[in-house]
Design a protein around this nucleic acid. Structure first.
Lengths: 249, 249
DNA sequence: CGTTTGGTTGACGAAGCTCAAAGCCGGTGG
DNA sequence: CCACCGGCTTTGAGCTTCGTCAACCAAACG
């Protein structure tokens, strides 16, 4: 009885973009890698670093972020099991942003040259990885709009919805979850202060949109109303299959 | 005496990411396309549309943007000559954002299936296009930080710097240029109101960071100081060559 | 248990928004 | 060539949302 292959969580999303046959999946699973257990709040890539590995989240949660001149921090994305964090940095060679764990994480590091080699030999796999980075781009665009044009309550609600939907995509309960972030980190993700995030969460609770048993637990009572409050529309996550229309000849 | 090929502006950026030989460049130039002359303020792609073409800017300026629920608009990127706008939308098949011209533009539409076919036959070209979308992603991340964590003055100065540097990259004068945007559009790009943008521009002028002969002209007196005021560091634009390190075997 | 980390609260202040009016400039048509 | 028009810019006054600062509290952790 074999355990599931270590890199198996990576396949879920890639299967959404292209149809992979068994040898292709095996080639991906066979990518050389090292598994690392990381404690929470650990910075694993720093802006400016030369990057030679991509990181795959096996368990736990992490974020990508940038500092601005004033010293303030902006989180640009949140990642969970199955996410290839930092493929972007690795491909561009030098990190334009940093990566940090939120919780304790198990992660695999994949040397970029092997990813490159595999994607060069199999165009389908290159497409899958390309699409993965394209969807990341789409999420970035949504975030620009979120922090640029939505008020505090909407921003926070939007983030709660995005997180819920991503949890659902990996098979976890989207209606009752534990936020892996402090209110400080929530603030860094939404472009607010932790004080204001605190007040927003309370107001979402008194409005009956969420319940919080502990400070970080989120129980979504009415998804429809929360999504409306968060101006949330799932399309930008491209969670649904986009198989290649174009066939090779 | 042959005029320069229509699609020639597309090559400049792609050459930064990979080394293309003459047949490869020719294949790109030979991509089927239609040239269109568009008036200013024309929306050419709408969020939600099925997208079958990518747009290449041949002259003029355009933006990509999204609406949020309140009706407010967020511009997520600005494009100029040589930019492949909307390769992202075209590859994902359905537009997650809209595209609009700012000025009168000459643009080429390229059917995505031909781009796909070419990039499937030549992995190098696929890499070049992939990298182009990766750099777009990097710019998006910077923008998340810009609207999320910088104050109004810094945001506007940052945008002026980014625009200047992109102009420089296509061989135009970065120190003395005409902004192709109204203050309303500037506001939509920075997450501010046009009234406040107006005041910020005035303060940048009285600080001596820019001069404005007309309302839209920007003359950068002291690049160093403007870049400092805008917390601007060019790295995220990845304007410098990143040739493939990995060779095919 | 003490200590640390993160959450909560209040009072106050400021950056940026709203609304509204007035000015300017370039384009158009008489 | 001039007058008008519409879109853009500029200005002012008042206001709101969110930030700051500082204290206090609660849960977690060693």
């Amino acid at each position: 009885m074999n355990a599931a292959p270590t890199l198996a969580p990576m396949l879920r999303k890639l299967r959404l973009w292209v149809s992979l046959d068994a040898p292709q999946e095996q080639a991906l699973l066979d990518l050389p890698h090292t598994v690392v257990a990381l404690e929470k709040q650990r910075v694993i890539v720093r802006e400016g670093d030369d990057v030679t590995h991509a990181w795959l989240v096996l368990s736990g949660y992490c974020v990508r972020f940038k500092y601005v001149g004033s010293g303030a921090r902006q989180i640009v994305s949140i990642h969970m099991k199955g996410d290839l964090v930092d493929l972007q940095n690795a491909l561009l060679g030098v990190a334009d942003h940093s990566v940090q764990t939120l919780t304790a994480c198990k992660m695999a590091t994949l040397p970029i040259e092997h990813i490159r080699h595999l994607s060069d030999t199999d165009p389908m796999i290159k497409d899958a990885l390309w699409f993965d980075t394209l969807v990341d781009g789409s999420i970035h665009r949504e975030w620009v709009g979120n922090v640029g044009r939505r008020d505090a309550t909407t921003r926070v609600a939007h983030l709660l919805c995005e997180f819920a939907l991503k949890l659902d995509a990996i098979g976890l309960d989207q209606h009752d979850y534990e936020l892996p972030m402090t209110q400080d980190q929530l603030a860094d993700a939404t472009g607010l202060t932790s004080v204001h995030v605190n007040r927003v969460l309370q107001s979402l609770e008194t409005e009956g949109l969420i319940e919080r048993v502990t400070a970080r637990s989120v129980l979504i009572g009415d998804w429809k109303r929360l999504a409306a409050a968060g101006d949330f529309h799932r399309d930008y996550l491209h969670l649904d299959t986009i198989k290649r229309r174009h066939e090779y000849r």
